[in-house]
């Protein structure tokens, strides 16, 4: 090196080398199609968001190679997570997660955890709302909870009210159990396959209440078929239509809040440069009006976070899920 920098020509050569080398090193770009794994079936919330991301990337030409969206829903998402876990060091495999990142290993004992994956970015947090059928007389959460306590759901066996939800030992049931334990009451919990199906069963009066995500029930709400009673968050949803719905704390005096992760992870030990590229890529997606509209429409909480902030959130939530599921008796025995 010293030898090289002794002459002007040497300096020049070094400079040229540096200029040429720097962009190559910083600008890692995908060289193969990106496999985007969804640990859930087609048509659900995670699936929608993943396909939206792929679509926006296509529309605004944000990636040099295409994104290939792959559903691996088996075993409550375990299939997808294990698939990505097996791709150590791969720079072209990413996965979108929902709460089954925490609940599936805890409940089924399938060996994976978020520690196996490379955190990339958190995009949004999904809200949960307590819904009842609009034809029922319950105008407030308090009235409905009193009916549940008094076993006043007349059409049901023993007057026991029915809570419908997505899957078993997943977010909907966790919230239901939290409600039961905080308020000292009992629901009959009926699991369904998908969120949309749950809300329709509420409209059809096959269940008495649900804790659907806003986007799953919003159209039925606007058609006057269902009624939101309370939001499971610490603050109200700041969007125009939604801000009149009280939080659970306001409505019932107990603080039950739960948010679902909509975030992206990469394959284990993904190269640092690749992670940086995905972070930049997702930030660009996040800033498009298309994505903003989607968040607004579904009343999702915008929550872009990366790096240490993201990891900290995930760590806390893993602990939280373990506690909640232990309290509810949902951990694998």
């Amino acid at each position: 090196m010293t030898h090289l920098t002794r002459t002007p020509l040497g300096w020049l050569t070094l400079l040229v080398l540096l200029v040429a080398a720097t962009p190559v090193q910083a600008a890692w770009e995908p060289t193969k199609p990106i496999e985007f794994v969804i640990p859930a079936g087609t048509g659900g919330g995670a699936d929608q968001m993943a396909r939206l991301i792929a679509g926006i990337a296509e529309k605004h030409k944000l990636t040099p190679r295409p994104i290939i969206v792959v559903n691996k829903a088996g075993g409550a998402g375990a299939e997808g997570f294990l698939h990505v876990k097996g791709k150590k060091g791969d720079a072209h495999t990413i996965i979108i997660t929902l709460s089954n990142l925490f609940t599936t290993p805890l409940h089924t004992g399938v060996p994976f955890s978020w520690h196996d994956l490379t955190p990339i970015a958190r995009l949004a947090l999904d809200q949960f709302i307590l819904w009842v059928n609009a034809e029922t007389p319950y105008k407030t959460a308090r009235e409905y909870i009193n009916a549940v306590k008094g076993k006043q759901c007349k059409e049901r066996e023993g007057g026991q009210c029915i809570m419908g939800g997505t899957g078993s030992a997943q977010e909907d049931q966790i919230i239901t159990i939290q409600l039961e334990q905080a308020l000292g009451l009992k629901f009959t919990y009926v699991p369904f396959k998908g969120g949309g199906e749950v809300c329709v069963n509420l409209v059809g009066k096959h269940v008495d209440s649900t804790v659907n995500n806003p986007i799953e029930c919003v159209s039925h709400w606007r058609a006057g078929r269902v009624r939101p009673l309370a939001v499971f968050d610490t603050a109200r949803i700041p969007e125009a239509d939604w801000k009149d719905i009280p939080t659970v704390k306001e409505a019932l005096g107990v603080d039950i809040h739960y948010l679902m992760l909509r975030g992206i992870f990469g394959a284990p030990d993904m190269p640092k440069e690749a992670v940086e590229w995905y972070v930049g890529f997702l930030k660009k997606i996040y800033d498009t009006p298309d994505f903003k509209d989607y968040l607004k429409q579904g009343a999702l909480k915008p929550a872009f976070a990366t790096g240490a902030e993201y990891v900290k959130w995930v760590e806390e939530n893993e602990k939280l899920h373990r506690e909640l599921m232990a309290k509810g008796g949902l951990l694998k025995k």
Partner: peptide
């Protein structure tokens, strides 16, 4: 899947 499309196009499926 089409339903997901409707939402992405900015339409709200439903009644």
């Amino acid at each position: 899947v089409m339903l997901g499309g409707l939402i992405i196009w900015g339409l709200q499926p439903g009644p």
